[in-house]
Nucleic acid binder design. Structure first.
Lengths: 321, 321
DNA sequence: CGGTGTAATGCATATTTATTCATGCATGAT
DNA sequence: ATCATGCATGAATAAATATGCATTACACCG
């Protein structure tokens, strides 16, 4: 049997088992196969990600940390997730789950979602969103161009598209590099009608989901490919930059770090972001602590989802002003 | 224990079970409780929405449409096939493929298959069946006579024979015209021992495969040759007939349309059909929509294979009684 | 304090699910 | 054609999970 039909069958079995809660033996009888086969199909359904199971820790577990974050940084909400170990992979997964859960729970009808389809944490979030039956959101808008590498571009587009499908929204992609070759090149790209259309939506976004990036040689180099020169990178660090949101950099007190690079980035600015009704920041992990602190100081976030270790660090060393 | 702590505990257990994939007994040992308690906590985790499981349909399949068809029309199964364009030729080909796959996957040993060797869609199905090495089915029974034209007769016989060969079954042909010249002629033909033998098998059929025909001047004339008078044709339409299965007509609410023609048809009746364990209907395309709806209302089908356009039409305009 | 009702727990076991094993079939090399 | 190999399948069975029932713990009340 063709692969598509096989997956179709598996999906059907999974539907009967998990949604309709029939027993394997009954499903087997219905579809004229053995119970063993049904069991195997269900296993395959897990492997193929046709069924996904997520565990969300009830929020409020770290009420004190959450309250601390809200208070110190003027957030309207903070979500601190349980996390067994202070390791980036595990942290991203848990933050993603919690963010997905939050999004599902609070998404309003006809919302326009902006997403900087860039961070692994956001990817984890999308992985954990469960499809919403009735179209909830209106548009999902990509707020930062892709990167030079077309494979990455595709990846970014897919993330945006998937999020749109899951929320029943229409995707508006930003088919441009995140960083243009020059200021002039950027102007040319902005002339593209599709790019313009998407960017015009920036001001209409009601809910923005952003990752927070740290400036570290390792991660920066890894992700920049060849779009940043090391000169530009040092411009940013020399000016005190500690992190970025959608490639807009800021220093440890949250003030924007303006460099010539800004002129080349195709994406939402911090100022545009601060006009959005709800801005959700997703980040955690040792290496991102200072970047997150900077982002919080910048005051663009309304909500932060982070892990218990990072939140403790944020509160410990800088109860601040 | 406080409710929050209880939920935390449940989340922890759920985490260990669903994410870390530990067994309940091990979790129980680790947390010093009984396996029964773990099981109960997991059940509670479901209720409290701490774990959520969703089934995502692989793209290119139409789980919602299938579910809709099952639900609205009380089918035990429905298969909706992908189809790039709403054009009869393409649709028949895809339906045929899917039906063939389904048949191969669910055919039981010693099954007695009835086939109204008449529609192009069924022909497409037979084209796509992969020979089964070990004799699976027992008999393939032709459930409707051929047509006056000997060439068509041959064609019908060949289809039946091919299906029999492919399934490793013995063919039982119905060597008679599908429509006798008169009631009396029919009685004479029924006297033939071979005809009788085949027709006696009708009640033993465990799996019937039928096409669904629309009543349209064009197709009717095309296929009728000179067996129907236009008078008889209008009898059927005047009585509200919208379609047929094996030349047994029904109206839009699925009620049989009885005309003198019935007395002349040599083939299985709708009533006989409804006694068959599994009845698979194959049909799709704009022109057949209402015929299919009638057939579904008649309640003789257990399974429908159709295309996405038609299934959408069936569900759109008539969420029905 | 004891009494009483409620809920939680663990044990034993029923039920359900996963796995092992033997078999049959297809595929591909020789 | 013949044989080896791998894969899918179902029957039997092992493993895992759910549940009935008795018991215990605990809160609340007189």
């Amino acid at each position: 049997m063709s692969r598509l039909n096989e997956l179709r069958m598996i999906a059907r079995v999974a539907q009967m088992y998990y949604v309709e809660k029939q027993r394997q033996a009954d499903i087997a009888k219905h579809l004229r196969m053995s119970q063993a086969t049904v069991s195997r199909m269900l296993k395959k359904a897990q492997e193929e990600q046709i069924v996904r199971t997520t565990v969300v820790a009830p929020s409020g577990t770290y009420a004190e940390l959450e309250a601390g974050l809200r208070e110190h940084f003027g957030l309207s909400e903070a979500i601190v997730v349980e996390c067994s170990e202070d390791r980036d992979g595990a942290i991203m997964a848990r933050i993603g789950e919690a963010a997905a859960h939050f999004l599902e729970a609070t998404l309003q009808p006809d919302e326009i979602i902006g997403v900087s389809s860039w961070s692994e944490t956001i990817l984890r979030m999308v992985d954990n969103i469960h499809p919403m039956k009735s179209g909830k959101a209106k548009y999902v808008v990509q707020t930062l161009g892709g990167m030079g590498d077309p494979a990455v571009q595709t990846h970014a587009n897919q993330l945006t598209t998937r999020l749109a499908r899951l929320t029943g929204a229409e995707a508006h992609l930003l088919s441009a590099p995140g960083v243009a070759q020059s200021r002039e090149a950027k102007l040319v790209l902005l002339g593209d009608p599709y790019v313009r259309e998407t960017m015009d939506l920036f001001s209409k976004i009601t809910l923005a989901i952003v990752g927070i990036g740290a400036i570290e040689p390792s991660s920066m180099l890894a992700r920049s490919g060849n779009v940043f020169s090391s000169r530009e990178l040092s411009d940013v660090t020399d000016a005190g930059g500690v992190g970025d949101i959608s490639l807009r950099f800021f220093d440890s007190s949250g003030d924007p770090v303006r460099t010539p690079l800004d002129e080349r980035v195709i994406g939402m600015t911090l100022e545009e972001l601060s006009n959005v009704e709800r801005v959700i920041g997703l980040a955690g992990g040792q290496s991102k602590t200072e970047a997150i602190r900077g982002a919080l100081q910048a005051g663009v976030l309304d909500l932060l989802v982070t892990d218990k270790f990072t939140s403790a660090r944020l509160l410990r060393s800088g109860p601040e002003s």
